[in-house]
């Protein structure tokens, strides 16, 4: 018996002018599951995250989180209800300290925000040594980690991860993949957008391949690489046969 889905996305549509960035995408996620979202640039992956996290409205379909449609909920409401995300290019509060960055999320999100929790989180992500520094003084890998810490401080049940791996070195990549797996083992559901297939392979249970705002494949990554439609989208028509 499979558990009740935490997130159910049903025939989601998002238009920008005449362009359909999302054209009827459907999938679901259960607690503890890691779903990869892959596809060429412009296929709608980040748009998908922007809609689910409440930054964009939608033009059709539904997004149900913990049994309730999130229609009309603003981003901060969703953050308090348990959906959070990271940004492809991190956007921390540059002039505030690392600790303050995380504190704000802990106070306003669903986390308890006790001092011990925060210290634990910072230590877990190797940020504790920088706690008193301004976020603007961190390097870009550290800012990415801080972005993740900000998201985690709200104690999300669903975490949307937008290209976290880009710009990390191999050692950092392995650590980050391990962290995400660990979060999933703790019961969190993750939706991971990523270009690095090795990372996707390592982290996800299952993938959805998107192209032009539609899903063209759903299943194991290993099977996706043998799917003719997926091959055509990624490598061009010449390789389709």
């Amino acid at each position: 018996m499979s558990p009740e889905p935490l997130l159910r996305v049903d025939r989601l549509v998002k238009r920008f002018g005449g362009f359909r960035a999302l054209d009827g995408v459907s999938f679901h996620l259960v607690p503890g599951e890691v779903l990869g979202l892959v596809g060429p640039n412009g296929s709608g992956k980040t748009t998908c995250i922007n809609v689910i996290s409440g930054l964009y409205g939608r033009d059709g379909g539904s997004v149900t989180f913990r049994g309730r449609d999130i229609a009309g909920s603003r981003a901060h409401m969703l953050a308090r209800r348990g959906i959070n995300r990271t940004f492809q290019s991190p956007r921390p509060f540059l002039s505030l300290t690392v600790r303050e960055n995380v504190e704000i999320a802990a106070w306003n999100g669903r986390g308890d925000g006790t001092k011990a929790d925060l210290d634990g989180l910072l230590e877990q992500l190797d940020l504790h040594r920088h706690a008193g520094r301004a976020a603007g003084d961190l390097n870009s890998a550290q800012q990415k980690t801080l972005d993740l810490a900000r998201a985690l401080a709200t104690a999300p049940k669903l975490l949307l991860v937008d290209e976290l791996a880009a710009g990390l070195n191999p050692a950092e990549l392995t650590r980050m993949a391990e962290r995400l797996r660990e979060l999933a083992r703790g019961g969190m559901a993750l939706l991971v957008v990523e270009h690095l297939m090795g990372f996707i392979d390592h982290v996800t249970d299952r993938v959805i391949v998107m192209n032009a705002g539609r899903e063209i494949f759903e299943g194991k990554l290993g099977e996706a690489t043998r799917d003719p439609e997926v091959i055509r989208v990624f490598l061009g028509t010449a390789h389709a046969r």
């Binding site: 603003r74 956007r91 921390p92 509060f93 704000i104 999320a105 106070w107 999100g109």
Partner: peptide, 20 residues
């Protein structure tokens, strides 16, 4: 402090649960 987060980046602030 939450207000200052809005000043720094309203979108990030919203994602931190701040009612911008």
């Amino acid at each position: 402090l939450s207000l200052q987060a809005i000043r720094e980046d309203p979108i990030s602030a919203a994602m931190a649960g701040v009612a911008v």
